[in-house]
Design a binder for these strands. Structure first.
Lengths: 209, 209
DNA sequence: AAGGAATCTGGACAATCGTCAAGACAGGGG
DNA sequence: CCCCTGTCTTGACGATTGTCCAGATTCCTT
């Protein structure tokens, strides 16, 4: 119906993505509760009516935004994982990226935790949020597995456990950074270092020459 | 002005608390974004106009609710901490309470994480949320300290670290429970057990007879 | 160039929000 | 007893929201 016949290609999809990118900026600034369709449109080069041409519904738009967010952030640590050849190099690189993303993508992280909270009240958000949560867990698990591999041990935890631990510290640091505490980033790095040191104590002791 | 002269006592404060309790129920069900003053009033025995007699503002009401929430949940683990005489007894009791509160106070926990997310976008919420966060950190720290004490070791972590680790796992379990995964509670308990076992490995090995 | 489909605009709609104020009700001190 | 003050109800207000639609505009095919 609304889709292409003249434009067989994904001109339609392209504009959807373009509008969703605009929406993500607004959502990151204002959060879910305060974001309106008119505000989203005014931060783009289109009028507010066009949103209902590309999205059936406000929730349809937001769900699409959430999925778009996922696609962008999932491979954040892949380069570090692949290029590192020692445990320390991997840990340092990972912690660097961790602090970097809080500084440079803070609105997006705030939005993510906001939407994840909303998913507990809004049924329609639950499934897309679950998928992203799983993707993030995989992302963390790849780092942990590589770290254990470089230490020549097997990771003594589950993927969910690793994700839960890291996510709790990350969220705490994001709140601290948002509140203007400058030591939030280095504190996060120190904490993760401490946890890793404790969890991989055996391997780290035996590998120390 | 609005306060008491005839009623010198805290009849005024009493009703504020009563209305805030009603508001907490509604907030727990609907979340911050979808909760309206009329909905709050309709879940109480009063009309919607009375809310502006006891609260200057919607945010004033919600901030008061948040502080009321704190007062109720902070001493959740005190009995277990004080009555336990062995590390295992403390851990078991703590894990029991942990799962229990997810089941029996799920709406309140959902609301807490919702409001904490909102505080990243709403300046006025930041300070009361920070206070509660600190209180929760203290609550967790009392458990950790007691556990270490019963093991006759010093806890090898900071209060913020302990809180961040546990909160991440707790939040994950709350999401799982909300999504209807029945194993979320036992998974949480297993995960916490695993982390404690890893973090206190030395003490647990030497204390084993 | 012309026509039609795709795209976009801007205004209008009903619904709902927080807020407010005028008046009804209650109850205790004169 | 009445009146004053604190308490509560009710209805209204302006603002804002998501949604919809009639028409203007653009763009491609023929």
């Amino acid at each position: 119906m609304a889709k292409s016949r003249r434009r067989p290609a994904d001109k339609f999809e392209e504009r959807r993505r373009e509008l969703a990118e605009s929406a993500l900026v607004t959502l990151g600034e204002l959060g879910y509760a305060r974001t309106t369709l008119r505000e989203i449109a005014s931060n783009s080069e289109f009028s507010h009516g066009v949103l209902h041409y590309y999205f059936s519904d406000k929730l349809d738009l937001i769900v699409f935004c959430v999925q778009l967010y996922k696609a962008r952030c999932v491979h954040r640590y892949d380069a570090v994982v692949e290029s590192s050849t020692t445990p320390d190099e991997l840990l340092d690189g990972f912690l660097g990226k961790l602090a970097e993303t809080i500084v440079e993508e803070a609105p997006m992280h705030r939005l993510w935790y906001d939407l994840r909270s909303q998913s507990m009240f809004e049924e329609a958000l639950r499934e897309p949020v679950r998928v992203i949560d799983q993707t993030l867990e995989d992302m963390v698990w790849r780092v942990v597995c590589r770290y254990a591999e470089l230490l020549d041990v097997r990771p003594m935890m589950t993927p969910a456990l690793a994700y839960g631990l890291l996510d709790g510290l990350f969220q705490l640091a994001l709140h601290g950074y948002t509140a203007g505490r400058e030591d939030a980033l280095t504190t996060l790095q120190d904490e993760v270092r401490a946890v890793v040191a404790l969890l991989f104590r055996d391997a780290l002791e035996t590998s120390a020459v």
